[in-house]
Every structure is written in structure tokens, then in C-alpha cells.
Amino acid sequence: IFDSEGVEYSIEGTSPSGEELSIMSFSGADGLSLIDKGGERVVEIGWFNLTVTRESATVVISEYRTAWNTAASNISNYGPSGTNLTWDENIDLRTLNTPFIEWVSLTVTGEEDSLKTGKSHQISAILANRGGHTANLYFDCDITETDIDADIGGYQNARVEPGEQIEVNFGWRNINPGYFSLTCDILTPTQLVNDTAFGGGSISTNSVIWEEIEEESFNMIPIFIVIIIAIISGGVYFIQKLSIDAEETAEILDEYQNREDTEETI
């Protein structure tokens, strides 16, 4: 019995007759698998010389992959490395060498009494791995009061080693004023028979108030001062220009008048 479907394994060892065993199989959608398709097999032989030989075999997992330990993640197979094949009706390999992720906390960081809409505010998420293997997981968040996807920059990723507790920081941006909280949910592997076999679940922050950003009043006084200075400067320049032009005009007229007087004298 496995926590997941599609677990590939083999039965390795020797039969009571001394023959080598190599039986390949995999778990179904219910996590169950029948050894050698459920067919009968000899597990003990009593010989004429009064000796008894028994089956000696081990369950060896060859491929146990889920969304939390894909080949690209460089995380090894889940499940035990080798389990003795007993004569028990069921061999339960669930929770062995698998991760178990739990939420520790989800909080809005900072000391503000209220948050401003339209701005990103930091959220601290702390997760712990209580299991025996590494998990490379993702989680997503909704606004608790509306069930609308929260603007947190997409799915958040966390790689948690066994026995480790980590903190993930990300931003939450909201455009609507009011009292709102954030609920985050761990995305568990779809291969699992039971969604909670590797832990997971959801957690929420406390409700916080979001307030609209007040538009700052536009102070026109500096602009008026600049305009007045520009007008005064322009006026002074214009008056100086007129004065210079007037002086030049007077000089031209004087020169013209002197020329006429000279001609009359001649």
C-alpha cells in the first residue's frame, strides 16, 4: 500500500526453491498493488530430508515521483529504500520516507495600523517539514473575504528539507479599501490518494484594514512665484530693450539732423 499512484517497484530476492525473484509492478489509483498481479506464489517448501526453505525477498522502489520531487528537482525517490517482504496480507509502505508539510504562521509584517491600497506589503509565511524527505512545493493565496485570487506575484515556491522550518517572504498588493485577510493554501501533489498524506492545508492572516492613499494637495504658490519672477525679469528686459532702442533712434535722428544742417550751410 502506497500514498501515491504510479509507484514503480520490484520484488527482489530468492524463492524457496532457490530461484531468483524479479517481479515488477506499480501502484494503482487507490495506491494498492497486488504482487505478481495477485497470483499464487510459493513462499515455503518442506523437503523430504525434513529441511524447510522459505522465500527471502525485498520490496525495492524504482520510481516514486510526485509534483514535490520531480526528476528536475534533484530530489530522490520517496518511500523506503528496501522493505522485507513478509507473509502479511498487507504491506503498508505509507508515510515511510516521505515529507509532511505543515503551516507554522502567516503574518503581515510591519507595525502599521493600516495598509495603503495600491502598494505592496510584505507577508511572512513559515512552513515546517515534519516528515522524512525533502519537498519542493508551491502555495497560492486568496483574499479570505471574497475568495478572489490575491495579488502576490504568482505562485510562491518553497523547498523544505526534512526537519527544517523555513520562512518565505512575498508582497501582497490590494486595490480595494476595507477589512481583508489573506488565506494561503499549499498545492499538494495530484498523484496522492489522500490529499493530506503529505500534509498541506491552509492558513490565514489576521484581518487588516486597507485605506486608500490620500492625494496630496497641489501647492500652487511656488509656481505663482516662478511666474511672477519670470514676468518681472521679462519686463525688466523689455524696458531695457526699449531704452536701448530709443537711444539708438535718437542718435540716428541727431546724425540725420546734423547732416541736413551741413548741406544747408554749403
Rank of each mutant, 00 (worst) to 15 (best):
1 I>R: 00
2 F>L: 05
3 D>A: 07
4 S>H: 05
5 E>V: 01
8 E>L: 11
11 I>A: 07
12 E>K: 12
14 T>Y: 09
17 S>F: 15
18 G>F: 10
21 L>D: 05
22 S>K: 08
25 S>Y: 00
25 S>W: 00
27 S>W: 02
28 G>K: 00
29 A>G: 08
32 L>M: 14
32 L>Q: 13
33 S>P: 11
33 S>E: 04
36 D>C: 02
42 V>C: 09
42 V>T: 14
46 G>W: 00
47 W>G: 12
47 W>R: 15
49 N>W: 01
58 T>R: 02
60 V>Q: 04
62 S>D: 04
62 S>Y: 00
63 E>Y: 09
64 Y>N: 14
65 R>T: 09
65 R>A: 07
68 W>A: 15
72 A>V: 11
75 I>H: 05
77 N>R: 10
78 Y>L: 15
78 Y>T: 09
82 G>R: 00
84 N>W: 08
85 L>P: 10
90 N>M: 04
91 I>R: 00
96 L>Y: 04
97 N>Q: 11
97 N>G: 04
99 P>K: 01
99 P>E: 03
101 I>G: 05
101 I>M: 06
104 V>F: 02
104 V>R: 05
104 V>T: 11
104 V>S: 11
106 L>R: 01
107 T>K: 05
107 T>I: 14
108 V>G: 05
108 V>A: 11
109 T>P: 09
111 E>Y: 12
111 E>V: 15
112 E>N: 15
118 G>H: 06
120 S>Q: 10
121 H>E: 11
123 I>Q: 02
125 A>W: 02
131 G>Q: 06
131 G>N: 09
132 G>T: 02
134 T>E: 01
135 A>T: 03
135 A>W: 00
137 L>A: 07
137 L>H: 06
138 Y>M: 12
139 F>S: 06
139 F>E: 04
146 T>G: 08
146 T>A: 09
150 A>S: 05
152 I>W: 00
153 G>P: 08
155 Y>I: 12
156 Q>Y: 03
158 A>F: 01
159 R>G: 14
160 V>P: 08
160 V>C: 12
160 V>E: 06
161 E>L: 10
168 V>S: 14
170 F>M: 09
172 W>Q: 06
174 N>K: 03
177 P>Q: 09
178 G>C: 03
178 G>V: 04
179 Y>R: 12
181 S>N: 10
181 S>M: 09
182 L>S: 14
187 L>R: 04
188 T>W: 01
189 P>K: 00
191 Q>V: 13
191 Q>C: 07
195 D>K: 07
195 D>R: 03
195 D>C: 02
198 F>W: 00
198 F>S: 05
199 G>C: 07
208 V>E: 05
208 V>F: 01
209 I>M: 03
212 E>D: 15
214 E>C: 02
214 E>I: 13
215 E>P: 02
218 F>L: 15
219 N>D: 15
225 I>P: 13
230 A>N: 03
233 S>E: 03
234 G>W: 01
236 V>D: 05
238 F>G: 10
239 I>Y: 02
240 Q>H: 13
241 K>A: 15
242 L>Q: 13
242 L>N: 11
243 S>R: 01
243 S>E: 00
244 I>G: 08
245 D>M: 05
246 A>K: 03
246 A>I: 13
249 T>V: 07
249 T>N: 07
249 T>S: 11
249 T>A: 13
250 A>M: 08
251 E>R: 06
257 Q>A: 14
257 Q>T: 14
258 N>F: 14
258 N>H: 08
265 T>Y: 05
